[in-house]
Design a binder for these strands. Structure first.
Length: 423
RNA sequence: GGAGAAAUGGCAGAGCGGUUGAAUGCACCAGUCUUGAAAACUGGCAUACCGAAGGGUAUCGGGGGUUCGAAUCCCUCUUUCUCCGCCA
């Protein structure tokens, strides 16, 4: 959520910036400015009436204490007119606040200057590409066939027990999963992140805090009986740890990591996108979350990007880094780098990580602030990134490291999974 | 799940329906004193919004109500604690 003060002072820049998303926010911003002005006028009026009636109330108290009952009763008469006026104004003020709030919820974050304009993923900017496509003598076998051949993952069983998109990992498939999680967590810890195991269900306020709600409730599983949501990413509970928090100094740097399963309804997905491990309703992910001083958030973003690159290199995967264009940028993000690994058998890129800087967009909703030198509270910057999401990493590992003898594990994870080859 | 009790500032803990945004203590910050520190003393110390400023308004778990006036009374929700039941 953008800050209303920013809209007051920089509406043109916001409108200009949002064009890169293909959004024309002129009407919304102008409406907001009108509501805001009206709100301030009404509120000032309401407060002066409140002030007056507070004053009279105090006088009445004084009269009673002095035993001047008649004066007190006369003063009471005066308040009734004020009261009805106050109530009317209060209602108007409330209505305006709701309107402003709803409008603010609708406006996405403003992309940073270096974010390219664009409509879809085709306009994303390839920042760099590392490694080369693996050459195979025959055609590479897709991961779902490999998973079946080596008994690693049972998709059919998942369909029976739960439904499509909820696979069973078995034997070495399960060990690979567990090993990768531990590997990612250890790497995060080495980089200074504190490990957290959060709840996997969150309340509505948390969903609003990080921007999943309102609007995108269709993407989350909703436990209606208790009005709770299954987390679509650890970002939600990890970032909401800091909802309504004021960090007492300005030298802070919060770095947390957490492994969680993630649950996504993924309504509307179909075809090759959902084949095998490409898109699941439940998947495992290690997430990084950072809360930073605005002056240090750019640096933090770079560090996170470097961290993810390091992981992909240790896994020996051919990957590329994209700077998302305005149109592909998430609602809450000011800048996002996506990481894609090359799927040798499917011959396409698979997204395995997304690292974003939200600036104050989330912290404004979260009321997440720090206390500056002048003792005033300022909004923090929030960031997060996957490091990494498991299914597509597994898909890429299986496909890219397949040999005639089996699937070779990258050196870095051998000690984590406990074997060198899947045979 | 059933029965009771409670929810006040960073913490502890007062609070009669009327200068209570809230006593007091601790913690914290600044100053005095000191070679330095401690102690002592003095002052400061919630958040948000509106306003150029003086200042104003709101907030005592959340929401609603009674009243000229609510931290204080009523309703409701949430959470915590104690006891009982159930249970990894």
């Amino acid at each position: 959520m953008l800050e209303i003060t920013r809209i007051r002072t920089g509406s043109d820049d916001i409108i200009e910036g949002l064009k890169k998303r293909g959004v024309d926010a002129t009407a919304d911003i102008n409406a907001l400015l009108t509501y805001d002005e009206e709100w301030r006028a009404k509120k000032a009026e309401m407060e002066s009436i409140q002030s007056e009636s507070n004053k009279i109330s105090k006088e009445i108290g004084q009269f009673f204490r002095e035993g001047k009952t008649q004066e007190a009763n006369e003063a009471k008469e005066k308040t009734s007119a004020l009261k009805t006026k106050e109530q009317d104004l209060k209602q108007e003020v409330n209505e305006l606040e709701t309107k402003i709030q709803n409008k603010l919820y609708e406006i996405p974050n403003v992309p940073q200057d270096i974010v390219p304009a664009g409509k879809s993923e085709d306009d994303n900017e390839v920042v760099e590409e590392i490694g080369e496509k693996v050459k195979f003598q025959d055609k590479a076998i897709p991961h779902w066939e490999l998973a079946d051949k080596y008994g690693l993952i049972d998709f059919e069983l998942g369909v029976k027990v739960t439904g499509a998109g909820f696979p069973f990992y078995k034997g070495k498939g399960a060990k690979l999963q567990r090993g990768l999680i531990n590997f990612f967590l250890d790497e995060a810890e080495k980089a200074g992140y504190e490990e957290v195991i959060p709840p996997l269900v969150v309340n509505e306020e948390s969903g609003i805090g990080t921007g999943q709600l309102p609007d995108k409730e269709g993407q989350m599983y909703h436990v209606t009986e208790d009005d709770l949501y299954l987390i679509p990413t650890a970002e939600v509970p990890l970032t909401n740890m800091y909802r309504d928090v004021i960090i007492p100094n300005q030298d802070f740097s919060v770095k947390i990591t957490g492994f969680t399963p993630c649950f996504r309804r993924e309504a509307g997905s179909y075809g090759k996108d959902v084949r095998g491990l490409n898109r699941l309703h439940q998947f495992d992910k290690v997430e990084l979350v950072r809360i930073e001083h605005p002056d240090r958030s750019e640096k933090a973003l770079e560090e996170m990007v470097d961290h993810v690159k390091g992981l992909l290199e240790k896994l020996g995967l051919h990957y590329r880094v994209l700077r998302l264009c305005g149109g592909d940028l998430g609602f809450t993000s000011a800048i996002t780098y996506d990481f894609e690994v090359y799927s040798a058998a499917q011959e396409r890129w698979l997204e395995v990580s997304s690292v974003s800087l939200f600036e104050t967009f989330q912290s404004n909703r979260l009321k997440l602030r720090y206390r500056g030198e002048d003792k005033k509270t300022q909004l923090c910057h929030t960031l997060n990134g996957s490091a990494l999401a498991l299914p597509r990493i597994v898909a890429a590992l299986l496909e890219n490291h397949q040999t005639d003898e089996g699937i070779k594990m990258p050196e870095a994870i051998v000690k984590y999974v406990g074997f060198e080859m899947i045979k």
